[in-house]
Write a protein that binds this DNA or RNA. Structure first.
Lengths: 398, 398
DNA sequence: ATCCAGGTTGGAATCGCTTCCAACAGGGTG
DNA sequence: CACCCTGTTGGAAGCGATTCCAACCTGGAT
């Protein structure tokens, strides 16, 4: 009577004096099973501590109902938000979710290889990772459905934002406040997908910054741009460099909130009061920004994960996803870290300050040409509240 | 030549003119297969885009190599750190990890039921969730190996910290600086495991706070204790209440860094400079605390997840885990948010300030009786650097 | 030429479940 | 009483791999 191994369905059937088919029926819905039989089987199951093997069931049924999600730098707040959004949807849809974290290109490659080499998941969500062409091809060859979130990928359903427009949004905001010397602190961007994890959002945001400066008729000053590894402390150091400049910027646009936090910390340390001595604008609107009273460009992080998951589910159901590129809306959230440049600054010259009207004009100009928002030909799900470029929503201080 | 369905091993064998056994051999190691055959099979695999079914392989082999991890409130920084630690180890050991996020008791129960009802994972890591007795029994009946991280559970291998000692550590630090009126901001603790997710660390830390006050001979003042839902904004509100007291505290101990951030924000808003007007100590030492210059009680978050995973792996290999309770070390990290109380405070009386020596004495007293650190009879893995209670490590401002 | 060791190979049995089909028990109905 | 319909049941045939065993080559030793 001593069975070391896990009891199987056959054991249960035997012990209950029924066939395996009946046990299966009891387990799944219990349709067309006499109540007395049902109880007897359940009683035996309970007594034996029988647990059906998910594996065997899935194999037999042919539907694993498992998806994998590949995320880089799991611990970053923006990544977690996306992951949480995806998990919420996948849970609801009854999928098990395998999470693959990649902090290095090696880990990323390892996971990608594993994912394409064997059929372990019905589908895969790729977050913030730029896929090389041959990687995409590998998924296609294995006919593994994939969707991408926060990264473009040719031919793959993708849920993204317009980083260039975001950069313009932040810059336009600062310009509208009257700033003319605006610094940029961002990521060091690797040579490609092999060098680092291939994040390019920082570069795109810088591009938007430059474009918006150009629109406002301000010359681009490379000396005001600092980049380094994505890390708050590093960003603090870079911001410190900017503030030590003979003619320091009156505002800094950071490519992410994490980096903006570093900038805030550096400002405090360098004696630049925020926003009096320095305005700061971040990007992402992660949870802690509200507390820090940081002005930032809001992007729907959690929603991006959820949308990616939804699209993958649709894909798994055989739907055709059109259009491929789903663009999520951005909006500027103005909090306490950005204001009009003060006239009294530690040692700074004042020559670059604009009258308030000038910046406002620049903003208006931006608003009147929403090209940046339409660049992606195939915009789907235009969320009702899709804001006009340059639109600002003030948020009360928490 | 048009096969809609995924090709199977049989298809490959047929196309390559070999048996399924040979294909399998090529796939796994390729021992004892002639090189020419190997190439032929690989070529067919490539041509057909064949990907072996993980499911079938796992079933056949009998080893799914999948574990599940249940985490509450995935987006909290402390949770993510634990998850990342666990994922690192599990990846390395070749396990797939299914992540179950629970933001509500319903989700928790749903996941727990699913986990015990079917055999979908070889083992389960439970993070920060207090398991009811019958839940533990369910796992035991199904003979599903589990380990617990950051939560005690009778009879289950657990990786925890001594929250009471942590509370003492923080309080002793503030006492040693000369504070006598010390506020506490923590979580609202639900009635049990059904009410909320059953976090009780805040309560234990409060207990440590009270105990250390008692040791220092200071009467406990319930008016200095505020609790609410775990949220920075809420904590800010609670801290605001404390600061508006006729005789406000000179220091606040927050039960978590998230809450401490709220306290910092409230202090700034209420015009209490930190640390001049208010000292603040948090708990956890999450990543952003260094940047905020927040003094805090450091607990090895990532390591806790890693240790839990390691122990689960050992369990899966049939090892017997002894002792059950693994206690991780705590240490106080002093940064810029805590200092001796200043004599000039906004409207506060000074009667409660101690000469510096008194607090120091309290600390020394704490150090001389390290009972709190030994309470758990079965301390394993006494990490070499296990610090004496009250030990402080100063950390440079980033 | 015979024999044998050892490297290759094919294919059946197996893993634990789902599912389908045939069989059977009742109970109306004509 | 024959007949059919519905509700219930047992059991065989997959699902797609792994694994084991027997069979089949080699070539070198006898």
């Amino acid at each position: 009577m001593h069975a070391a191994a896990r009891p199987t369905m056959a054991d249960v059937a035997l012990a209950a004096g029924v066939g395996t088919g009946t046990v299966s029926r009891v387990l799944n819905g219990g349709l067309n099973v006499r109540e007395s039989t049902r109880r007897r089987v359940l009683e035996v199951i309970e007594r034996l501590g029988y647990r059906p093997s998910h594996l065997a069931a899935a194999l037999s049924r042919g539907t694993p109902r498992t998806v994998a999600i590949l995320v880089p730098h799991l611990t970053r707040p923006s990544t977690v938000a996306r992951l949480a959004g995806a998990l919420g949807v996948l849970d609801e849809q009854g999928y098990d979710t395998i999470v693959c974290n990649a902090d290095t290109p090696e880990q990323r490659d390892h996971h990608l290889s594993a994912l394409t080499a064997r059929h372990r998941a019905d589908g895969v969500i790729i977050v913030s990772v730029r896929l090389a062409k041959d990687r995409i091809a590998a998924f296609r060859r294995g006919s593994i459905p994939i969707v991408s979130v926060d990264a473009v990928a040719p031919g793959v359903p993708q849920t993204v934002i317009d980083d260039v427009a975001g950069g313009r949004l932040a810059t336009a905001h600062l310009l509208s406040l009257g700033h003319r010397r605006i610094g940029f602190v961002g990521d060091l961007v690797g040579r490609g997908t092999d060098q680092d994890l291939g994040f390019i959002s920082s570069r795109s945001r810088l591009q938007g910054y430059r474009r918006e400066l150009a629109v406002a008729g301000i010359d681009f000053d490379p000396g005001l741009v600092r980049v380094g590894p994505h890390d708050a402390a590093v960003a603090a150091g870079l911001a410190g460099q900017l503030m030590r400049l003979p003619d320091p910027p009156t505002a800094i646009f950071a490519a992410s909130d994490t980096q903006a936090m570093g900038v805030l910390s550096a400002a405090e340390q360098s004696g630049f009061p925020v926003p009096g001595g320095l305005s700061v604008v971040g990007f992402d609107d992660i949870e802690s920004t509200a507390l820090l009273n940081l002005s930032t460009v809001h992007q729907p992080l959690e929603q991006s994960g959820a949308e990616g998951a939804r699209r993958l589910c649709a894909l798994l159901l055989g739907a055709r996803i059109r259009p491929l590129r789903q663009l999520l809306p951005l909006r500027l959230v103005q909090r306490g870290s950005s204001a009009r440049p003060s006239l009294a600054r530690p040692g700074g010259s004042r020559s670059h300050l604009l009258p308030a009207g000038a910046g406002r004009r620049a903003l208006d100009r931006g608003r009147s040409s929403p090209r940046a928002w339409r660049r992606a030909a195939d915009v789907l799900f235009c969320v009702p509240s899709f804001p006009a470029p340059g639109a600002c929503r003030a948020e009360g201080v928490v």
